[in-house]
Design a protein around this nucleic acid. Structure first.
Lengths: 126, 126
DNA sequence: AGGTTATTTCAACGCTTCTTGAATAGTTGA
DNA sequence: TCAACTATTCAAGAAGCGTTGAAATAACCT
């Protein structure tokens, strides 16, 4: 991923409302949610929501599609993944302490739900 | 990590000069580099550099210490790690496609240098 | 066609951030 | 103490970002 795109993505994420949007939409995956219901869920005025949604879309972190009279927004998992990947791999050169912090955050939940390892070949249940 | 700290960290990273600073300092680890040499390396005016360095330090991504007449700046790997961890774990709920993107970025280098896996117990050479 | 709902665009204002040069503070060595 | 070096603070101006309400566009239903 090019640096300019990463910068745009980070700038988009560095805002309370927009981070809320990602957190709200991420669990829904490709199904997403219509703009109106997002506004309702987060208690946002329509123009303000629209502004932030298009900021995230332009940064490659969200996708949108029309369905009837609604516009459905959903996360662009690839875009988000590439952004985090840049930070982790390119920017931090896989610094051991950085990787450890990421694994540690995951460890808490894994203790309950079973361990998940990230390897070069993908995500594997162990 | 609290959300407000993550937002501050993301805001700090979302700037070309500051991302350059992190990328410059990350490989040096705790050893770091004096401000003057950083300015020289990146071709920045002293006040401008100082502004961005303190922005990164206040965001918890950099540390500083005095040595003789120099101020040495070095990365705060824990702060950076926690920021990425928040994005990866809390914000994205370990979405498989996001994890895959991160693993993929690493895969290229691993093919040459041997595979590294992130597990709940830390980073392990395999 | 007319009314209704859903969403975006526009324009204006206020606020914060970034950059620059000048001035200031702290440290070292003669 | 004086001079040299290193780094930060200050002040001012330019630029960009975020919020708001009003207006416009688009799609649907009767």
């Amino acid at each position: 991923m090019e640096r300019s795109k990463v910068l745009a993505a980070l700038g988009a994420l560095a805002h309370e409302t927009r981070l809320d949007l990602i957190r709200l939409l991420m669990p829904l995956g490709a199904a997403g949610m219509p703009a109106g219901r997002i506004a309702q869920a987060l208690g946002l005025a329509a123009p303000r929501l629209s502004f932030h949604l298009s900021a995230l879309e332009q940064a490659g972190l969200l996708r949108s599609r029309k369905e009837a009279r609604n516009v459905i927004y959903s996360v662009d998992a690839a875009g988000i993944g590439q952004t985090i990947s840049y930070l982790l791999n390119d920017c931090c050169s896989d610094h051991p302490e950085v990787l450890a912090a990421c694994a540690h955050g995951r460890a808490e939940r894994d203790r309950v739900q079973g361990c998940t390892a990230v390897t070069a070949s993908g995500t594997v249940k162990t």
